[in-house]
Amino acid sequence: MIQLKQICRDFEVGDQQVHALDRVSLDIDRGEYVAIMGPSGSGKSTLLNIIGLLDRPSAGSYILDGENVTTLPDAVQSRIRRDKIGFVFQFFHLVPRLTAAENTELPLVLAGFPPAERRARVDHILEAVGLAERKDHKPDQLSGGQRQRVAIARATILEPAVILADEPTGNLDRASGREVLEVLEKLNRENITLIIVTHDPDIAGRTARQIHIVDGRIDRDIATRRVHEGG
């Protein structure tokens, strides 16, 4: 479902050209569980941003669900992002003044869903991530793991086809990190494509496929086809 062909992404740093991505080609099928790994500055986050339509490649093409989305205008890309892609960030990025329920509701609000439907969906999804009793808490009243679960609820409320997680456990202790991963893996078993950027080998070990990026190129692409743990 995700097809990258000869993707390049160049940045200008001072008067120097930096090739964050250099002719990356990649196919990811629906329902895959993929880890993107690599040292800092290798271009793995840039790759994730391009997949998430947050960034545009300098060259190459990106085909999502059979549609070439590389050069679509901002408004159309926004809609695709909203409908097909869910983001989970290292620093959660919850809006501090909104409650857990309101943060979760945000994509529905932006998409213009009627309030009654929003409430039903939010209740359902918070139940699913085990935060039903915490829905009226503000982010600063939640633990790190709970915040990340709110973020996951928000990422999945519009039932996206792909979840892109950038170091989702990077800011969590081991136990909460494990909890968060389990929630994500559960979604993956419901046939949502899960792509995680990480440099934690333990997390990578749980995935079915590891893509190693070094200096903007795919260094290794290993399919381990491991059976999910903990499920």
Partner: peptide, 16 residues
């Protein structure tokens, strides 16, 4: 800034 970036990631177009 982060909030605006988030809104964009969640699918808010520029005009919103």
């Amino acid at each position: 800034t982060a909030e605006i970036g988030l809104l964009k990631a969640l699918g808010a177009p520029a005009h919103t």
